[in-house]
């Protein structure tokens, strides 16, 4: 899981950001880049067009609720989002994101983050630094058992290493 010291822009969303908003069904058979260009358009028309590599998505409760479609997390990876910070995550989305190497951080203090705040996120330590407001926020730690997958950069690199050891 990448750690960056460079501050990036926060995009703010509310509660219950569902997988149909993230990966609309009408584009599910399209290419990942086309699907990603419609990511969250029903709630923020500018997001997919203007989000920059390294930016953060900040949201409320139950982020990623709904379908098991992995493209919901993959679209955010495709757009360059470097981490999602939310009060809580839907469980399949949470696993999908970590499996793809996209850091997902549970943080009770997300309401203190405002639109366009510049953040530095350390997903391993679970610490968010808000450069704009000079605050720091603590995130819930990722379960130690999951850190093996996280540290490998996702489930595929983790499995590759596992299969390499077996052969």
């Amino acid at each position: 899981m990448p750690t960056s010291n460079k501050a990036s822009h926060a995009w703010i969303f509310g509660d219950n950001i569902d997988t149909d908003l993230l990966a609309p069904g009408a584009y599910m058979k399209a290419s990942l880049s086309e699907l990603a260009s419609h990511c969250l358009e029903a709630v923020n028309k500018d997001f997919a067009q203007q989000v920059k590599k390294g930016d953060f998505v900040v949201a409320g409760e139950a982020f990623g609720i709904g379908s098991s479609r992995e493209q919901a997390a993959q679209a955010l990876v495709e757009l360059g989002v470097s981490a999602i910070i939310a009060k809580s995550f839907a469980r399949i989305f949470y696993r999908n994101a970590l499996n793809l190497g996209l850091p997902v951080l549970v943080c009770a203090e997300v309401d203190k983050i405002s639109k366009a705040d510049q953040l530095i996120v350390d997903p391993i330590a679970g610490v968010i630094t808000n450069v704009t407001t000079q605050e720091t926020y603590q995130c819930d730690p990722i379960h130690p058992e999951l850190m093996a997958i996280v540290n490998a950069g996702g489930l595929m690199p983790f499995l590759k290493a596992k299969f390499a050891r077996q052969s």
């Binding site: 098991s68 399949i92 696993r95 999908n96 489930l155 299969f163």
Partner: peptide
């Protein structure tokens, strides 16, 4: 339980899955 596609790859390859 429901899972996503990378997780499914692991499930098909190993016949196992971790669960809390």
């Amino acid at each position: 339980v429901g899972i996503g596609a990378t997780e499914m790859t692991g499930a098909l390859a190993t016949g196992e899955i971790w669960i809390k």
